[in-house]
């Protein structure tokens, strides 16, 4: 079996569990995003796979081979660090060459491989610059080039875009997809940015407090979240949560609510944020404050009735946060 397989992986630090029994597989050519708030264990997972940290229990298999105890240098993994970790005293070309040189790759082959990857990333004209002379986006590409050059058995990326501004992030996303996803080595991509994960990854694993919350396709996670945490972590503006009878919560995404002429939930407009292509309305209702997302052109007036498709309802148990399935429209009146 090829690809990356993580079995029951745990990491304890003092009496704190950074990672608690993680199970994952990433197939060759697949890009899996680890998504979660800071401290959820996503970077820990990455460092364990890289060999920069040792697990307390569990196994890591790469191409069927158990690499759990192997030193980092022998695992043939590549990692793009959040800070890029470019050697500040070396030029771009030398940054790329160092690893090859140490592994005894002959000068000619080295030169050729570097030239290829520089061209792939359109860095050819920057080869003699120092990292300090590069922009943030350029640095990220050099770090990516260094990782690709490693011809890794698994590619690890630790928040590679978090130091870039929003516009650049958007520009680079398709580029990153082109370079990473679909190529042979499996990709493990850590991010706290849901948009990045949704837009880039084949599958997403949502982590919280060291535990896997849900693993699935981006669309699956959004439309069919396993629990309250996943439902509220994904989606901006955040999902509306209405308290209901029996210690239950009804989750309704802001884009699923709509004003109706028929009888529904009475709402009064409190405040409006105009976002250009859309507008966010903050509403006062008998069930608390709700967020409603509408096309920017619509003018529902100051007070109206609210309705939603029953199929979009997401029910949770308030205390445990567990999803209540098969709990449908007939219960809506229980509000």
């Amino acid at each position: 079996m090829s690809g990356l397989r993580i079995q029951n992986l745990s990491r304890q630090l003092g009496n704190r569990l950074l990672l608690d029994g993680l199970e994952l597989t990433v197939a060759p050519g697949e890009c899996l995003a680890l998504l979660g708030p800071s401290g959820c264990g996503k970077t820990t997972t990455l460092r364990l796979v890289a060999g920069l940290d040792q697990p307390s229990s569990g196994r890591i298999l790469l191409g069927g081979e158990d690499i759990t105890g192997q030193p980092a240098g022998q695992r043939q993994v590549a990692m793009v660090f959040q800070s890029y970790a470019l050697y500040p005293h070396l030029s771009v070309a030398d940054n790329l060459a160092l690893g090859l040189r140490v592994r005894g790759v002959p000068a000619q082959e080295r030169e050729q491989r570097i030239a290829t990857v520089l061209e792939l990333l359109q860095l050819g004209n920057l080869r003699s610059r120092r990292p300090a002379q590069l922009s943030g986006g350029q640095r990220q590409r050099v770090a990516l080039a260094r990782a690709l050059l490693r011809q890794p058995r698994v590619m690890l990326l630790d928040e590679p875009m978090s130091n870039l501004d929003a516009q650049l992030r958007e520009e680079l996303r398709p580029e990153l997809r082109r370079l990473l996803c679909g190529a042979e080595p499996p990709v493990l991509y850590v991010t706290h940015d849901q948009q990045e994960a949704l837009g880039l990854a084949d599958r997403i694993a949502v982590l919280k407090d060291g535990r896997l919350q849900q693993l699935g396709l981006p669309r699956q996670l959004y439309e069919d979240p396993a629990n309250l945490f996943v439902a509220s972590f994904l989606g901006r503006p955040a999902i509306n949560l209405l308290p209901a009878e029996g210690g239950r919560l009804l989750g309704l995404r802001p884009e699923h609510l709509r004003p109706t002429a028929a009888e529904g939930l009475p709402a009064r407009l409190q405040r409006r944020e105009w976002w250009g292509h859309q507008q966010l309305l903050l509403l006062d209702t008998p069930r608390g404050e709700l967020r409603l997302l509408l096309p920017s052109g619509s003018e529902p007036g100051d007070s109206f009735q609210l309705d939603w498709p029953r199929a979009c309802e997401l029910w949770f148990e308030a205390r445990s946060g567990e999803r209540l399935r098969g709990f449908g429209s007939e219960n809506t009146r229980a509000l």
Partner: peptide, 23 residues
């Protein structure tokens, strides 16, 4: 991360000292 990056690239301790730490 600089030393870690070098570690991942397969540099042993002596090589990391020579190529990364001392410079």
């Amino acid at each position: 991360e600089l030393e870690e990056a070098a570690q991942l690239e397969g540099l042993d301790f002596g090589e990391r000292v020579r190529h990364v730490l001392l410079p």
